[in-house]
Every structure is written in structure tokens, then in C-alpha cells.
Simulated assay, not measured.
Amino acid sequence: MPDLIHNLEAVRQRIAAAAHVAGRDARSVMLLAVSKTFPAEDVRAAHSAGQRAFGENYVQEALTKIEALADLRAALEWHFIGPLQSNKTRPVAEHFDWVHSVDRLKIAQRLSEQRPDHLPPLNVCLQVNISGEASKSGVSIPEAVEVAQQIAALPKLTLRGLMSIPEPAGDIDAQRVPHRQLRELLERLCDDGLALDTLSMGMSADLEAAVLEGATIVRVGSAIFGARDYSH
């Protein structure tokens, strides 16, 4: 898989360059390889090239992949990043290390109730609809403070921070605006007493803007794995 390995290294270089401009250590930014719609073999190849964290959007596809890669379970970190329905929370609570897309208290409560006792607390991020789009999931900025406090109090979960999928913007200055808003919200929550350390923001097209505004996790798929085929 020479293209995948080349792409992975190219994305790492993009992160490092943006971190340098921001005066940050590149190691402070986790690359989450979004492997949705791509086969387990591609995940295995990326792991061989040093990638550890992988993001999935679809529960059943992810479970099939996790099972196929069971021999690597201790070496991989699985992040659920897609919309999560109430009737799908149990397998996510049982098989994932992170959930970025907690968009309402009910989902967090179900994940807390269904997280097995033998596993460490599930790392979660509160999804914020930072651009206020009607088509996007997530709490509004005014709602975020109260919901974050409620999630942080739940057992068997660790609220790590915030996630967003902002409206696409054409240039880096415009891209930075919603990422800056999310960072400022995180800072407000920390000032209110929450111990948060994660900003999950930035994808293939805007990772530089996200890193400049403090992203600690960037979610990159097509720039690593190539164009997706949704026909199946």
C-alpha cells in the first residue's frame, strides 16, 4: 500500500508544519485516521506504518472491522465519530475507546450505563454545532455549559473535551473562525472547573486552521485513504 503510506506521511508533515507555525509541539496533535468505508486491510497497513488511532462512523461496519483486527486490539485505539442513535449505544460502549459525537445528554447517559465494568472509563467529547447549521448534530454554544457539566458527572465516562464539524470555508482565515470559537468555549468550560484537554476539530481540508487554533485531535480520512466509495 505505497500510496497509503505516502499519504499518511504527507498528512503528518502537514500537521508538523502547522504546529511549527503555531509554536506548538507536533506531538500535541493526535492524528485520527478516519477509516470509514475502507477495509480492515487498509487499517492494518496504516498500523504497520505507525498509525494507532482510527475513527469510524458506522456501528456495524466498525464492529466487523474491530473483529477482523482482533489480533491488534491492544495496539489500536478505536474512536466513534459518527452520529449515534440511542439503540446503537451498547456496542459502542462495549467496543470503543473514544466517542467524539455525544450530541445530547441521553446518549451520554446510555453510554455510561452500558460501559462494561472491566473496561476503563470511556473517553467522550461533547459535539458542538459551532456553525449553527440546521443539518448538523450537536449542542449549541449556549447549551454546552450545562450539558458538559451533566456529562462530566456521569460514571464510567471521562469527558475529555469538545468536537465540531464546522461549515466549510474557503480560506484559512475563514476556516480558523469556528475553530477559534470552539477553543474559546473549551477555555470557558475549564474556567468553570471542568478538567478538559481535548479539541477534536479539523479534517483533510482544514487541518492547518484547526492546529493553529489549538486542535489536539484532527480527523483525517480522504487525505490518507483516498476518495470514498459509498456505493456499497
Rank of each mutant, 00 (worst) to 15 (best):
P2G: 00
L4E: 07
I5M: 06
N7C: 08
A10C: 00
V11E: 05
V11W: 01
I15K: 08
I15D: 11
H20Q: 15
A22F: 01
G23A: 09
A26S: 14
L31F: 02
L31M: 06
L32D: 08
A33N: 06
E41M: 13
R44N: 04
H47N: 12
H47G: 00
R52P: 03
E56V: 08
N57Q: 09
Y58C: 06
V59S: 07
Q60Y: 07
Q60W: 06
E61N: 07
L63A: 04
T64Y: 00
I66K: 12
E67S: 15
L69I: 10
A70D: 15
R73G: 01
R73I: 00
L76E: 07
H79C: 04
H79M: 05
H79I: 10
Q85K: 02
N87L: 06
K88A: 10
K88L: 09
K88D: 12
T89E: 11
R90S: 10
A93N: 10
A93V: 04
E94A: 15
D97C: 06
H100R: 01
V102Y: 09
V102D: 09
D103N: 10
D103A: 12
L105K: 08
A108N: 03
R110N: 13
R110A: 14
L111M: 08
L111P: 09
L111F: 06
Q114R: 14
R115Y: 10
P116E: 11
H118N: 15
H118R: 14
H118Q: 14
L119D: 10
L119N: 11
P120I: 07
L122H: 08
N123F: 00
V124M: 09
C125D: 03
C125L: 09
L126Y: 04
Q127I: 02
N129K: 05
S131L: 05
G132S: 05
G132F: 07
E133A: 07
A134G: 02
K136Q: 03
S140H: 07
I141E: 14
A144V: 01
A144F: 01
Q149S: 13
Q149A: 15
A152R: 10
L154R: 10
P155I: 02
K156V: 01
T158E: 14
L159A: 01
L159K: 03
G161P: 06
L162T: 11
P166Y: 04
A169D: 04
D171Q: 05
D173A: 15
V177T: 13
V177C: 03
Q181I: 00
L182I: 02
R183S: 14
R183G: 13
E184R: 12
R188N: 13
R188K: 15
C190P: 00
C190V: 15
D192A: 15
L194R: 11
L194F: 12
L196F: 06
M201G: 11
M201A: 11
G202A: 07
G202Y: 02
G202S: 03
S204P: 06
A205S: 15
L207S: 06
L207W: 02
E208H: 01
E208I: 00
V211G: 08
L212C: 03
G214Q: 05
T216S: 14
I217W: 12
F225R: 04
G226H: 10
Y230N: 01
Y230P: 00
S231A: 13
